[in-house]
Design a binder for these strands. Structure first.
Lengths: 156, 156
DNA sequence: AAGATTATTTCGAATTTCGCAAAAAATGGA
DNA sequence: TCCATTTTTTGCGAAATTCGAAATAATCTT
């Protein structure tokens, strides 16, 4: 039962802005030694609190078509469907939900054609999908992992 | 009109796995010099193809409740609503969509209580929201920015 | 093919990261 | 409160990485 303290959160906030800022620079900003930053980050990584990543711009990669698709699945096959979908590289997000749809996924495509093909050929091949409700993204306003707040929290 | 070539894509693929891997290591893996990796990355950053970031685990930060909320907005107020929602730190994703809902958002909360409060107090205060259709996330199967494929693409 | 432009390599210097031991701080009984 | 134990931080020198800039190579244009 370890807690994230203020220093941990500050480190995460700084890294959210630039995931490759030197530890020495973080240390300077927070007024502690580089070693402290290093050991904190090592621990946060070990605890799985975060990972170093990159955030690509899908449009710049040619993935100009994004969609959120709500799926209805056959009872008992939901997990299978979710796992199959997770394997697809076009699919960026897969979750099981309460509400109108059993599964909701988010996926990126090069074109509308590719989206249609995905729905007609890929989804139809997965056993257990009863219905797919496609919402086409017209404009993106926000898409961020910047979810580190300042309140303290206990790790499970 | 610049293209992402195979080297660019390989760099992105490597960085997707570990956003803090040394340039020398990438260079070694790809069989080019460190300087090339450096200049490629500098250009990719300048072109906005990607950013260095971290991917926090919401649950580890105490954000155990996630939801996708489909919103119906009053005609003409959609953009305003989207911008207001984007300001909220609990909100991670905001997009305008074709389909059943005008806007779809994704948000993280510490508790169900916080979610309810968000819907009842935060959303109701934003002018132009006609209806909110909340789907509570029961299980997350995939959530990734790993969307770099291998095909070449022209930058706009 | 020559010249101009752009990209890559090379390499020494500056900076950062790493490993580790000592110091300091925090924790926990008695 | 005092002392023992554990955890965290600090302070280095060594190793590795990044940076800047010039030299080389590749590409493009005419």
């Amino acid at each position: 039962m370890r807690k994230l303290d203020h220093v941990d959160r500050q480190i995460l906030q700084i890294l959210q802005v630039d995931g490759r800022i030197p530890y020495t620079e973080i240390a300077h900003q927070l007024g502690v030694s580089e070693g402290t930053i290093r050991s904190r980050i090592t621990r946060l990584l070990q605890d799985g609190v975060f990972q170093f990543a990159i955030q690509p711009d899908p449009a710049k990669l040619g993935l100009k078509v994004q969609a959120i698709i709500g799926l209805t699945t056959k009872l008992g096959l939901q997990q299978n469907v979710a796992e199959e979908l997770s394997k697809l590289s076009a699919v960026r997000f897969v979750g099981a939900f309460s509400g109108k749809h059993d599964l909701i996924i988010q996926a990126c495509f090069h074109s509308n054609d590719e989206l249609i093909t995905f729905v007609n050929e890929r989804l139809s091949q997965i056993e257990g999908i009863v219905a797919a409700d496609v919402s086409l993204e017209l404009k993106q306003y926000k898409d961020s992992f910047s979810i580190v707040h300042d309140d303290e929290v206990t790790l499970q």
